[in-house]
Design a binder for these strands. Structure first.
Lengths: 300, 300
DNA sequence: CGACATATACTCAACCTGAGTAAAAGGGAC
DNA sequence: GTCCCTTTTACTCAGGTTGAGTATATGTCG
């Protein structure tokens, strides 16, 4: 066996939602995600990252989940002789606590992905993006149809519905088409802010993962304060999904799940009728419940 | 930044279903998963694994998906000075083609996890396992209630329903309780066959992932031959899920999805009425379709 | 030819989901 | 104070989906 040594780097995509805006923790003025080396002393990858984030940012880190491991030659900068393996994690934190030693910056998801926010309808960035992608598809006659279909499905064009979970797929399409700066494209307001190396890809991975997860696991509560109103909860979910939700049905869904309970207090911040405050019932069943089970079981 | 170098190792969990039995490709007489080093020449992790599997086994590798990256100090053998990072992949292959140079061995999933097969009802191994776990829970009064709840939910005890997707959670519970050989336990027929290092954990991860995925992505077809009957398809899904499914409803589900079409041929292998043969319609929408969308959308 | 085995087709009630409407309860302008 | 505005909360209802079961077709084997 060859002596295959590599750098191992841990990268954190830490997300919070403040003022109904999903944010990610960054360094270098918003150009990179916080990262640190994996060291021999660390008990495990996850433990390594935890230690490291605590040290650097002082942020209490609740939920943490491994995202993906990358080591693409073409997507990391120089140093071709020695490979870097990047192991990325998704972490959820409560609304922006005090910044620690490193004074990290928080930036909105949608600065990097302006086409992903559909809370107020289809954003203008999406139309520009669609034009550019269509041009790219047309530029290669042999692959045009296939490309066009992928574009339509990813962006919700020509009869396809918008699917918020395809965030990563959309970014990868932009990358493949050479539109984003990371792939040699020209900077442009519709294509979002670029990031260092493949950090934006990791953010896209995180968004996709989180948008899928909020549907079947009670992870939103990791982002909420102890007490909250139903509207606040809804706005947080909407911020993450980048979608507007139907209020009465959202409420019905929430109390079917029996995951929250009234605190007895009221909140009257919003001008209208005061809202009840709720808290999360930290039930053990967390892992268990809500597992869709689409298979038609048989009992015998 | 410290010079944090580590070994990077790629591990493949290759799965096929033969004779209604899900199998995994192994080396060392079924004691380890095939693995190889990640090398500098490899374009990406995925490409590295592909190359490597092709070379070693000659198996045409269809579907491939990253599973998880591990580097736990306590779970890998010796060599504490230099860490090994294991990046595991799940690969799906069609029914057992010719064995290549390495003459790999295939072993049934349920040799390693005898408690996971519920096609004919609750297996005996599960009861034994439950007894041992309950004893473990009782042995620490301060944590007893919490442990008991986890056990009940994982194994489907005391009113909880069996959830086939919790395969990894169940193995981790066995590990934590010190019951499996990998965690220093005594060998026993109910606790399944042990594997090298944490390979069994990777297999458990693969099972969990695949059992979840068959519900919302058409991955089963990667395991099927070109033409198949509906019963064959059902038995394959049942083998993976370790569950018996309701025949009429399974059929209804399948043709709602419109993922398959009749070939026009019939098969009369089974003794009863001949069955129509079907083939998979390799639709572009693959990624798109079937995304549950449990969020209550609003249109405006 | 009839028993058997399997495949295929249909039914029906209970539940869930999308969509919309109506009533309640504060604050602020006049 | 009263009326209006805003937001929360409560209810309705049709259509679709799901769980469960029953009935019919079409081969093979004794």
């Amino acid at each position: 066996m060859k002596d295959a040594l590599a750098h191992a780097e841990l990268i954190a995509v830490l997300t919070a939602v403040t003022n109904d805006e999903p944010r990610v923790m960054t360094v270098s003025k918003g150009e990179a995600l916080p990262s640190g080396p994996f060291e021999v002393e660390h008990r495990s990858l996850q433990a390594g990252l935890r230690e490291w984030v605590n040290e650097q940012t002082g942020h209490p880190l609740g939920y943490l989940e491994q995202l993906y491991t990358f080591a693409d030659r073409d997507r990391s900068p120089k140093d071709k002789a020695r490979r870097t393996i990047s192991i990325s994690y998704l972490g959820l934190v409560r609304e922006q606590a005090a910044p620690g030693a490193g004074a990290p910056g928080w930036h909105g998801w949608y600065e990097y992905f302006p086409w992903e926010d559909h809370r107020e309808g289809r954003p203008a960035a999406l139309a520009n993006m669609a034009d550019a992608l269509n041009a790219w598809a047309a530029s290669d006659p042999s692959r045009r149809d296939h490309r066009q279909k992928r574009i339509d499905l990813s962006l919700g064009l020509n009869g396809a519905a918008w699917n918020e979970e395809l965030a990563l797929q959309r970014y990868e399409l932009m990358y493949e088409a050479g539109l984003v700066v990371e792939a040699g494209g020209e900077p442009g307001p519709s294509y979002g802010r670029p990031m260092f190396a493949d950090h934006r890809r990791m953010l896209a991975t995180a968004i996709t993962r989180l948008r899928a997860k909020i549907k079947y696991r009670p992870v939103v509560f990791e982002l909420m304060p102890a007490n909250f109103t139903l509207s606040h909860l809804q706005r947080t979910v909407e911020a993450l999904a980048g979608l507007a939700l139907h209020k009465p049905n959202f409420r019905r869904l929430i109390d079917q799940q029996e995951l929250i309970e009234e605190t007895g207090e009221m909140s009257s911040e919003t001008g209208g009728r005061p809202a009840k405050l709720y808290r999360y019932r930290r039930a053990i069943l967390e892992e268990h419940a809500l597992s869709s089970a689409r298979l038609p079981l048989s009992r015998n």
